[in-house]
Each structure stands twice: as structure tokens, then as C-alpha cells.
Design a protein around this nucleic acid. Structure first.
Lengths: 224, 224
DNA sequence: TGGCCGGATGAGAGAACTCTCCTCGAACCG
DNA sequence: CGGTTCGAGGAGAGTTCTCTCATCCGGCCA
């Protein structure tokens, strides 16, 4: 699987990224300041760099610029605080690289990463995800159960996509919460339960299994 | 530019597709029944086929199956009535091909077509569209004006994307209405005006020019 | 068996979104 | 110059979406 370098100094976010990316199957290394980011990135051992702008010692811009001047063309996804107006300038305006304003949903970042890695010549990402009679179209964000088209809200879709990307695997509420809702969401909330219910109503209740005390799992019913 | 074959018997929709695709810069041929679709498609003169399932004489499934059996691997996007439950079965379930349930928004179809053509080895579609200090990120559907991040609703984004894909060109209300809202939308509505106003409020009013009696146009102000 | 705990469900508040309708003002045309 | 037409803008209704909260139910354990 691909190797990803994360340059982020806020430990909470760094941990969030590391855990999520690792669970997705990437090899992850985290660094917390600019010089370390440079050094690691230059080593050539990574397929992609997730780069926070607000790094200590040497900020993200400087890191990126050094990389590029050294001829390093690895794909870079920039994390930028949304509040800082000027930050985003170079994000979108700055040129070829991808950016992602904070706070972001993990699934969104994942989508960007997949896109970047794919364009690097890897196998193309399938446009339709299938599992046990379910079909999810990632480009139009629509779903079908056993051939019946189903309307999903944005949240519902995102939750279902997360589940279907880990077929047969149990995901805890915390995992789902952080992936679909983001890293700064109230851990005591029962949104996940509620949205599971919404999905069950639309997909049929047997599609999503409850593992008591653990979490939820997509079950692989064959098409009705 | 790419050549597209449209197989659709409802004249209203066929005309809608032909006009829209042509305006986008594709070379378009329209056929209205199954045998004609087969014949044209087999000719090899097209890069992509937009195929309605409800064709007379020979339905879309049959056309597709004949094509594939004949070894033709051209990308096919299937149009399917959303009401017909069973139709969608083979749409999403059927395998490798793309499908698009009716009624659809033109811009959505366009996105699918671009995706298909891109994966055919053409130049990759840029992920950020820029024009006159505007930057639009097509993957996250976010926008920035002169570096300032702007939140857009789904409709607002879609309208702005349509405008930015025709930089400097005047688009009529009808064009915008059919592209962003769909082909069966009330032509007497003033939604376009309203959404132009929303965009102006968010982007600055000078960004979108009004051409009296004609329509709207993005103006290429340099970044503020 | 009785009580507890985790999950399911119902209800609903608040916000965002989409669209319609109506009025005002300005451009254009005679 | 006056009337007409077209677009700008304000206001608001209806809907959907997202999330919270409170209650109910059923499994599980003492």
C-alpha cells in the first residue's frame, strides 16, 4: 500500500490523521515541524505528503517551495486553517497542488488522497462500490439496493460509503464519528445511531448489523 | 474534440442533449432507435455513447450487449428512467458501464462524460478551474475569490461551474436553466436571476456581468 | 427474575436550501 | 420625454437536512 507522510504539529489532528490513514491501509509517518518534513520528504520514501501550513520552525510554504526547488514532484495536499484568510490564497491560487481547508471531514481528505494517488499511475479507483447487493456510485453519490435506486442525503451517503469501504468489518461509533463527522465532533453524541437508523429505513434494516458493545457492520446479504 | 453518439428517441431530450453537448464543444450525432444506434456505434467513429434504455425496435440492453459481443469497448453512459424500478438493476448492477437516472441535470451528465473520456487516456481534467481571480475546486465543490474561501450551496456551485467553464462567453437564462436545473424545468422561472444574485453577494457583484436582453457572463477581473 | 445498560426509535428544533412572488429601479425605445 | 420591458432585490414559504433529547425496548448479567 502507499506510504504517506503527514506533517502536522497539532497532536490531536496528527493522531486523528495517523489513526484514520493507517486504518485505511496506508503506511503513515508523522513529523511535527518544517525541517523534519523537508528531510523526510526528500528521502523519497513516500508517495504523498499531507502538509499543514502552520508548522513550527519552517512553515508549509517554505517546505513546499524547498521541495519543488529540489526537483521533488511528489503530490502534496495542503491543510490550511479556514479562518486565516490569507492562508488560503496560496492554497487555491498557488498552483498545481491540492489544498484542504480545516476543519475537514476525514472522508473528504481520503477522497483527495485517492485522487492524487490514482493520477500517479496506480490502478484507477472504481466508480461504483459494490457489496452484498448494494451499489454505491462515488461520482454521483447515489446508491441502489438490489436494483432499486435510493435517495441519500449527503451525510447518509458518506456514512454508507465509509461502511462499504470496509466490507464485513466492524466499525466503532468513534471511528464512524471521526471519519464521517470530523475530528472535532462531540464524542458523546448519538448521531451515528440516528444515521444508521436512517440508512436502515432506506436500505432495509438487515443491511446493517449491530455488534452490541462494539459498533456496526455491513452485512453481505445477497441481492433480494 | 471528442465525438459523441446519442441514442435517444424522445425528441425533447434528444434535442436538449444535442444542443448542450454541441455547445460544450463535442461533435454530436443523434440516432432514435436501436438498430441505428448499433450501426453507428459499430462504425467506430465515436469516442463515447450516450444510450437510452427505452429505444424502439431494439432496446438499450440489446444494443449494449451486441456492441460488447462484437468486441466494441467504447465507454457507454446509460440513461434510465428513474420510475422504472427494474431498469436501474442492470444500470448499477450490470457491470462496468456508467448509468444516469432520468431526470438528470445536464452538468451531471457532463461530469460523467468528462470522467469517461479522461480515463480513456486523454489529458487529465484539471481539478481547479480558474478565471479572473476566481478558483473553483471541482472535487470538493468549493470556491475562492482572490484567495478568500467562499461557501457555496450545491446550486450556487453548479451555476458558477457552468459559467466558469465558458469564460467570457454570454450564457442565456435558458442555457443556464437547462444546464444547471435540468430539461424539464419551468422556463418562466426567474431562479437563474435569483441565484446570480446569490453568487454576486458572495463573490462580489462585479464578477458576473449582465448582458441586457441576452444573459450573463463571467467577467475576468484580475484578482482584487 | 429483576435490574441495568446499550441501542432503537420518535419527536422536534434550528438551520440551510431552493424556489416563488412581488416591487422597485434603470435601461431602452418610440 | 413617457412608457415599456428587463433585471435587481427583498421577503418569505415549503422542504430537506442535521442534530439533540427523551423515552422505550431488549439483551445480558447478577
Amino acid at each position: 500500500m502507499s506510504r504517506i507522510l503527514v506533517a502536522e504539529d497539532e497532536t490531536r489532528i496528527a493522531a486523528f490523521l495517523e489513526k484514520g490513514l493507517r486504518a485505511t491501509g496506508f503506511a503513515v509517518t508523522v513529523v511535527a515541524d518544517g525541517p523534519a518534513a523537508c528531510q523526510e520528504a526528500m528521502s523519497g520514501g513516500y508517495d504523498l505528503l499531507v502538509l499543514d501550513l502552520g508548522l513550527p520552525l519552517l512553515d508549509g510554504f517554505a517546505v513546499l517551495s524547498r521541495l519543488r526547488h529540489a526537483g521533488n514532484r511528489m503530490p502534496v495536499i495542503i491543510l490550511t486553517a479556514r479562518t486565516g484568510v490569507t492562508d488560503t490564497v496560496a492554497g487555491l491560487e498557488g498552483g498545481a497542488d491540492d489544498y484542504m481547508p480545516k476543519p475537514f471531514r476525514f472522508e473528504e481528505l481520503l477522497a483527495r488522497i485517492r485522487l492524487r494517488l490514482r493520477s500517479e499511475g496506480a490502478a484507477p479507483e472504481p466508480t461504483v462500490l459494490r457489496y452484498g447487493g448494494l451499489a454505491l456510485d462515488v461520482t454521483t453519490r447515489r446508491a441502489a439496493v438490489g436494483g432499486r435506486e435510493v435517495d441519500l442525503s449527503s451525510r447518509e451517503y458518506s456514512l454508507l460509503e465509509t461502511l462499504i469501504r470496509h466490507p464485513g468489518q466492524v466499525l466503532t461509533r468513534e471511528q464512524l464519528l471521526s471519519r464521517v463527522w470530523g475530528y472535532d465532533f462531540d464524542p458523546g453524541s448519538n448521531v451515528v445511531d440516528v444515521y444508521v437508523r436512517y440508512l436502515r429505513r432506506k436500505l432495509g434494516s438487515a443491511r446493517i448489523e449491530t455488534i452490541r458493545g462494539v459498533g456496526y457492520r455491513l452485512s453481505d446479504l445477497s441481492p433480494e
